[in-house]
Design a protein around this nucleic acid. Structure first.
Length: 805
DNA sequence: ACGTCCCGCCAGGGG
DNA sequence: CCCCTGGCGGGACGT
């Protein structure tokens, strides 16, 4: 069984097998499979491609091979060579695909699936050794856990969010960012040298994180069962895998090169000798890990092109992991949206239930597309910072603004299912159910984000959280019970979809990217992924329920509590940043925020959650904005606060806000004349630090006017699971119960027609009809709120510089 | 020539 | 003591 009979046909191979002592450690040469005259026929190539693409087909083919092998003698020609699996067909990634296809991503808790290694190895026709590789990294993600010999439990991706969050936290504690930066810096300084002095640097930088030698990050409830395996020495691959993942989660362009990863992973335990062989071995293992992570679609191979040249690297493509906050859990909706509610008429409660199934009110969901946007924006902002003279800078302020906005936009108010439907449009294309005719419209209803609680009953308290990466704060909503200390305030804006037909979008055709590090999208080496995935998803075999030996599982199935999130050290820094930012007065009407942050958030234990005061709020810059807490409740909103927006809308500061007037947009697209908005933008950019003082940017040349009203109407009519995807515009209106403004935003996830990177960042633009100098025209809304001005935030497509390999 | 990584030896340790 | 686990790295394969 172990050795295919075909190989025995090759006499040479028989020899090697008979004399293992001669070449004990050599990989057996690939058997000379084909007669020299008849190499790969086009048909066979095609077959191989297909088989590589689909595990089903492949396994079927392998079955055939098995039966063939008995009567192998009369195999000839193409049939013969087909029987010889190429090296690629035996790749770990493919094997992992087959392995994963056996189990559901989200197994129902009722029916636990068990993994018997013997069965797996038999059915997949692989050596046991290979399965260990797979299982080990799955174990590192807590997708499986070991029960006993030969026995594992399959958890699927249920634990993934928590695992990733925990990993990210540990990664931050390990200061991986600094390590990466140091490695890169050194690499840049002196090309190649293996001197000792380098190691001293290493030691100094790594030294602080001595606690991270070989610890395996566990999840409550998913601990290692087979007590033995806790002998940490034998968790190397697992630990490596976890650390590898940490590197992704921590680094901001979520791209990690193998080289850097290997150096860091080596540097941690053995920073003495960075000898070549150890490095090589590390790389070897990283390939193994990367292969199964790729199969899990958590990473993807890319190439980073730097000054030195192309280097293999991997890019995180898994779910976004949000910053660890104490008792707030945020999950990517791509997963939470998956389980549909059975009811046909989704209510807010149901939505909330569907979105936060396990932990109820403490869970908050943020839309994955928003997350991606924010992430991309942050990336771009960093790039912009490093390239101060780039013409893209004009959009930097918009990025920043959108960052604020999105950081704040955790929740939206759903009034109707249609609106919820619209929310779905924000989600990434994968998250939106394709408009399959067979699909019930109701299935797509619960998509989107919504407050974790029924806002009408229990209003939530807005809280300003420091964002560790962007250095800015974002607002988040908490239940009053969860936000006992109330110190700051930001005026509440309700964000809700607005059916609006007279929207005007501005599209920027400037899609220049200033990467000094371009990444080329990884190739198709695991190209069969896509077809494989769909196939596997459709006809994923029902998990084999092993009736035997199920009793040996006595461990509790309790879901892991998410209690381990503590505050990170970086919060303090980011807090400082945000504070200075706020204290500028330019953007912040929130005095309480300033004081409160200082007072309350200096406490590291609580800084993550700075609650707000439900009293009156004033700003030294923009004046007092009285706002009793009751207002928040009466508006029946989840007290959703958009600090930056509010800032920009402040009557006194609106002139300085990065707002481009209509006239600018309409007329001056070709004009080079300075305009007020330019100076405002420059001021803001400089102020925020996006550009150095003295550098000016021109606002208009990159902007274009594009009407999108028809599209927006189209959206609003969409009631079923319509495909609100590419090129569509989603609008929101910010209502302020006070006199602030009512803004209308258009988010265009991606430009129509352009087949670009799906998660492409988009340029965005923000304007008010009246322009900066125009007094906003007030109008009354049906609900009585003042509608003083309107702006459009438009996000045309902007591609990430990621090219195919 | 180099990036990728299959393959299987063999040590450690559990049952 | 058997055999499961899994560290490890030679060298084959692919480009």
């Amino acid at each position: 069984l172990k050795t295919p009979l075909k190989q025995a046909a090759t006499s040479q191979l028989v020899l090697t097998e008979r004399q293992p002592d001669c070449q004990p450690l050599t990989t057996p040469p690939k058997p000379k499979e084909t007669p020299p005259a008849d190499p790969w026929t086009p048909t066979s190539n095609l077959k191989m491609l297909i088989s590589a693409a689909s595990p089903e087909i492949r396994s079927r083919e392998q079955q055939r091979q098995l039966s063939d092998s008995s009567s192998e003698e009369h195999l000839l020609g193409d049939e013969y060579e087909k029987a010889q699996p190429s090296r690629k067909e035996k790749s770990l990634g493919l094997l992992c695909h087959k392995f994963l296809a056996r189990y559901p991503d989200y197994p129902s808790p009722s029916q636990k699936s068990y993994i018997c290694l013997d069965e797996v190895t038999e059915e997949l026709h692989v050596e046991r050794r290979r399965i260990y590789d797979i299982v080990n990294v799955l174990e590192s993600l807590h997708m499986v856990s070991r029960l006993a010999r030969n026995r594992y439990v399959w958890h699927g991706r249920h634990n993934l969010p928590q695992t990733l969050q925990a990993l990210k936290k540990v990664g931050e504690e390990n200061k991986y960012i600094q390590q990466i930066q140091m490695i890169k810096r050194r690499e840049y300084e002196h090309e190649f040298d293996a001197d000792g002095e380098r190691n001293e640097e290493m030691a100094s930088s790594f030294g602080s994180s001595e606690q991270s030698e070989m610890s395996f990050v566990e999840l409550p409830g998913v601990e290692f069962r087979a007590a033995s395996v806790n002998g940490r020495k034998y968790k190397s691959l697992r630990v490596m895998s976890q650390k590898f993942v940490m590197l992704f989660l921590v680094s901001t362009p979520q791209i990690v090169s193998l080289e850097v990863a290997a150096k860091i992973l080596i540097g941690e335990d053995q920073l003495e000798d960075l000898d070549k062989s150890k490095f090589k071995t590390k790389i070897r293992r990283l390939y193994d890990i990367a292969n199964v992570l790729s199969s899990l679609k958590l990473i993807k191979k890319v190439h980073v092109t730097e000054e030195r040249g192309r280097k293999p690297a991997f890019k995180w493509t898994g779910p976004e992991v949000l910053p660890n906050t104490q008792d707030i859990k945020l999950e990517a909706t791509s997963t939470t949206c998956a389980p549909p509610v059975s009811e046909s008429i989704p209510s807010k409660e149901q939505c909330s239930k569907a979105l936060f199934p396990s932990k109820g009110k403490q869970n908050f969901t943020r839309h994955s597309s928003l997350i991606k946007l924010v992430k991309s924006i942050e990336n771009d902002r960093r790039k912009i910072q490093s390239a101060p003279t780039s013409p893209v800078k004009i959009s930097a302020s918009m990025y920043l603004f959108l960052t604020f906005l999105l950081e704040s936009c955790f929740f939206f108010v759903f009034k109707t299912p249609e609106e919820m439907q619209m929310k779905c449009a924000l989600s990434s294309p994968e998250a939106v159910p394709k408009p399959e005719p067979s699909q019930q419209p109701a299935l797509s209803q619960p998509l989107g984000v919504c407050p974790a609680s029924h806002s009408s009953v229990s209003p939530v308290s807005p809280v300003i959280l420091p964002h560790p990466q962007s250095g800015v704060s974002y607002a988040i909503c908490l239940h009053p019970s969860q936000a006992p200390t109330v110190t700051t305030y930001s005026p509440g804006f309700m964000l809700q979809p607005l059916p609006c037909a007279n929207v005007t979008g501005i599209k920027s055709n400037n899609s220049k990217v200033l990467n000094k590090t371009t990444t080329e999208e990884g190739d198709t080496q695991r190209g069969p992924d896509e077809p494989t995935k769909s196939l596997a998803a459709e006809e994923r075999p029902e998990t084999k329920s092993e009736t035997s030996s199920q009793r040996c599982l006595k461990r509790s199935q309790a879901l892991p509590e998410n209690n381990l999130i503590k505050r990170r050290k970086s919060d303090e820094e980011s807090l400082d940043t945000s504070l200075s930012f706020f204290q500028s007065g330019y953007l912040i009407p929130l005095t309480h925020c300033t004081h409160g942050n200082k007072a309350e958030c200096s406490n590291k234990e609580k800084a993550g959650v700075c609650s707000l005061q439900h009293t009156a709020y004033s700003s030294p810059i923009t004046g007092v904005i009285p706002m009793p807490a009751s207002e928040l409740k009466t508006v029946n909103i989840p007290a959703f606060h958009i600090t930056p927006l509010n800032i920009m809308l402040s009557p006194n500061s609106i002139a300085a806000a990065p707002v481009l007037s209509n006239s600018c947009l309409n007329s001056s697209s070709t004009s080079s004349a300075p305009n007020p908005s330019s100076s405002a933008l420059n001021f803001m950019l400089q102020h925020i630090g996006l550009i150095p003082a003295g550098v000016q940017v021109a606002a208009n040349p990159v902007l274009q006017h594009v009407p999108v009203s028809s599209q927006s109407e189209n959206i609003n009519h969409s009631s079923g699971s319509t495909n609100v995807q590419e090129g569509k515009v989603i609008e929101f209106t910010f209502y302020s119960p006070i006199n602030a403004s009512n803004f209308l935003f258009s988010l265009q996830p991606s430009a129509p027609k352009e087949p670009q990177e799906p998660q492409a960042v988009t340029e965005n633009f923000f304007r008010t009809p009246g322009g900066p100098n125009t007094e906003p025209s007030a109008s009354a809304n049906s609900d009585g709120t003042q509608r003083t001005s309107q702006g459009t935030l438009y996000i045309p497509q902007r591609k990430l510089e990621v090219s195919e390999d």
